[in-house]
Each structure stands twice: as C-alpha cells, then as structure tokens.
Design a protein around this nucleic acid. Structure first.
Lengths: 71, 71
DNA sequence: AACGATTGGGGTAATTCGGGAC
DNA sequence: CTTGTCCGAATTACCCCAATCG
C-alpha cells in the first residue's frame, strides 16, 4: 500500500514495550524490570505520568545477547 | 488487562522456566540444573541480573522418556 | 467521570549465583 | 563421573497502597 493511500499515519515511532511485556519476555517480575531501569541496565522512556516504556529493539538484543554455557 | 487479552501485537514470547521449576520437573536440586547449563547440556538464557532461564520446550523434550532403550 | 488493569513506590521473604569441598 | 549439601552475597519475588493508563 502506498503512503498516500494509507489511512493511518506512518510516523517513525520506535516500538515501545510496557514493563509487564518485558517482564514476560524475561520471565521475571515487572518490578525486576523497574530495578533494571533504575540501575541503568536497560534504557527507559517515561510517560508523562511517570510510567516506564522500554525499547523493543534493545530488549530483543538483550535477550539474545547471553547465549548458553561457558565452560 | 490480561496478557492473553491484550491486542498489543504479536509479542514474541518464548516460554521460559526458572531453575527451581526445572529442578522440580526433573526431581533434582537446582544446583544440578546449573551444572547442566554450565556443561552445555541444556540451553540457558540470562536475566540482566545473571539468573538463568530455560526454554520450556527444550525441557519438555529432555523430559521425554525413552521406554525401550536409552542412549 | 468511572472502571479494571497495570505501574510506581517502599519493604520484606525467597531464589539464585558462585565458589569450594566433601 | 554425577549429585546433594554448605556458605555469603547478589538478585529476584511477593506484599501493601496510591497513582497512572487505556
């Protein structure tokens, strides 16, 4: 579909994830994701109300980052 | 809103298990599961804090008993 | 405005980590 | 050779309640 005929606007938005979604992906508690953000282990964007949102791309990288074993 | 109900988009979810859960399923000590991971016998993903998470699918496969013959 | 679900603060239990030795 | 246990330290989970989200 061409841009001119698209109904929804094609804004360049970086996909964001909620704390709950990130928590699900890592199999941890949402509060744990919050602690990761506070300690600078993961980038966090804030809503105007103070809630955190996370970069989907960064999350996927962090999930793949640590492979398996080490001797 | 529940995870299953949210229409956020197809969030890539690979079901993960904690060391304790895997240990319970195999009826072994969690430390033993850690040893399996360190020796590369089972795949492990890491949380940002260094804790291990295991692939549920792989665990289920490993749990499958071979009645007639092993090895 | 009102509603259910989620999140953000805190505090306190429970797991997990790593090493090491038996 | 595998497994369970011991230890201290670090990480994570669960509890409350008020605020934000959609």
């Amino acid at each position: 579909m061409e841009e001119a005929t698209m109904h929804k606007s094609t804004l360049n938005v970086t996909p964001l994830l909620t704390p709950g979604e990130v928590a699900t992906m890592f199999r941890v508690d949402p509060k744990t994701v919050t602690r990761w953000a506070n300690s600078g282990k993961i980038t966090a964007v804030r809503t105007l109300g103070g809630h955190r949102r996370f970069l989907e791309e960064e999350v996927r990288e962090l999930l793949e980052a640590v492979p398996t074993q080490r001797r």
